[in-house]
């Protein structure tokens, strides 16, 4: 599934992933292939991204919104840093 992490200033990440773990407002959750369409708010925490080659990347965020739709994930974050 295709993941994009976007801030107002730049695109932090764009690429294929196997698994994305997100700090939802109601608790952390994971997104795998064929997840149902959803829109959720995110709170402060870490986004964990697992790439197809097994690489794991973390992004620290202050908050944001995520939209999941037909194996496309778009995460809008205010500001973020690679960890």
């Amino acid at each position: 599934m295709y993941l994009e992490i976007i801030t107002p200033e730049k695109k932090l990440f764009a690429g294929e992933t196997d698994l994305v773990k997100l700090p939802g407002t109601n608790g952390s959750f994971e997104v795998l292939m064929n997840h149902a369409p959803a829109i959720s708010t995110l709170s402060e925490g870490k986004i964990k991204v697992k790439e197809p080659n097994g690489n794991i990347i973390f992004f620290e965020i202050q908050g944001g919104v995520v939209e999941i739709k037909s194996n496309n994930i778009v995460i809008l974050v205010d500001s973020s840093g690679l960890v």
Partner: peptide
Amino acid sequence: FSDYIFEPDVNEIMGTVIPKSLKIQFF
């Protein structure tokens, strides 16, 4: 198309999305 699951709920999401879009508009 509109068949989304909203987490936690629509009003809460509105509450975060609207300020964001205002800030973007200003920026």
